[in-house]
Structures are given as C-alpha cells and as structure tokens.
Simulated assay, not measured.
Amino acid sequence: MIDERELDDGLAAFDQLGREMAETNRLLRAVRTDQATRNQQEHTLSAEMRAALKQATGASQEALQASQTEIRSSLLWTGLTAFLIVLVAFGGGYFFGQRSGWETGHAEGYQKARNQETAASWANTPAGQRAYGLDRQGSLDLLTMCRGNGWTTERQKGGTVCFPYADPKGNVTGWYLP
C-alpha cells in the first residue's frame, strides 16, 4: 500500500515536472521569437547598408564622370573610403548581431537542457516510477482530477482540494490538485 505522503510527494514532483516542461516550452518560444527578431534586424541593417553602398557608388560614379583633372582622383578616393566604411559597418553589424544571437540562443538552450535533464532524472526516482505506474493503471487522472465516487473539490487557500472520503473519526482528508 502506498503511503499518502509518498503519493503526495509523487504528485507534487509530477506537478513540478509539468511546470518545468511548460517553462521549457515558453523559453523555446522566446528563443525562436528573439532569433526571428534578430534575423529581421540583420536583414534591415543589410538592406540599409546595400542602399548606402548603392548611393555611395552612384555618387562616386558621377564624380568620376564630371571631372577630368585632379578633382577626379580626389573624388575617387572619397568614394572608395565611403565604400570601405560601409563595408566595415556592415561587417561589424553582422558580426556583433550574429555573435549576440548565438550567445543568447546557446544560454537559453543550455538552460532548457538542464530543465529537461532534471525532469528526466526525477522520472527515474521511486516517486517518479510510482507516478508512472499510477498513470499506466489509469489512476493518476482519477487522483489529479478528483473523479472518484463521492469525491468532491473545494477551493481553499488559493488551491483546489479533493476530499475523497471521511475517516472513521469523521475527519475529512484530501490533497491539493495540480
């Protein structure tokens, strides 16, 4: 016979597992959203850099055609300098954006893996095995949803309590539902 305390511990641990999995899913969605935002920012930066590069190249071409003398050489260097500045800015923006995104994704992925590792290790404990056994027998839903004959639920102290029966002294016992 399973002690009620062990059952409570198993149910509490099973509930914790559910919360950790929900948190893991939330973090994964946040990582995906953050990565999509970073990709959009990098794409916008790239488009702006191409426009600036096109504008700088156009200005350089006009300057080359307008002058035949020493001004021609001077404008050519100005255009090349602008082109190099644009290339350096584009490369730096891409590098720092990519690095920041990778570091954030790596940290969040590591945290998710740690949470799943914790959940998996709990599932291999005696309490986790008992909870799994209850689930295989169909009893876990009965316990967590308070669906037994004559069982009732009440809201107490911010939680829902299941009252399955009264003991011989008339005391009612129960457990908190997840």
Rank of each mutant, 00 (worst) to 15 (best):
F96P: 03
T44G: 05
V31E: 07
Q98P: 00
A89F: 01
E42C: 07
R5D: 07
G97E: 00
W122R: 01
A56I: 03
A63E: 01
Q116V: 11
E70V: 15
D8R: 13
Y94R: 12
T24D: 06
L11K: 03
M49K: 08
T57L: 06
L64I: 01
L75K: 09
A120H: 00
Q55N: 11
A123D: 02
R19G: 15
V86E: 07
G91D: 01
L64G: 01
L75Y: 10
S74Y: 08
A119C: 02
A123L: 10
R114F: 02
A82N: 08
E4R: 14
S60R: 14
H43V: 07
S46T: 00
L11E: 04
E48W: 14
T37I: 12
K112F: 02
L64F: 10
F90W: 15
R29N: 15
G101N: 03
E48M: 14
A36L: 06
A123E: 07
T44D: 10
Q116E: 09
A30P: 15
T37S: 14
R114L: 01
L87T: 00
A12G: 02
L75W: 08
W77T: 15
V86N: 09
Q55G: 05
F90K: 12
P126F: 13
L84K: 09
L7I: 02
E117G: 01
F83M: 04
F83L: 08
T81A: 12
G101Y: 01
I85C: 03
E4V: 12
G93R: 08
L84S: 09
A82I: 00
Y94K: 09
S73E: 13
R29M: 13
T33A: 06
Q129G: 05
D34H: 02
P126W: 14
Q129A: 03
L80G: 02
A13D: 08
A52I: 09
Q41P: 04
E117V: 00
G101D: 00
R38K: 12
V86H: 09
A51C: 03
T78R: 12
L53E: 14
A127D: 07
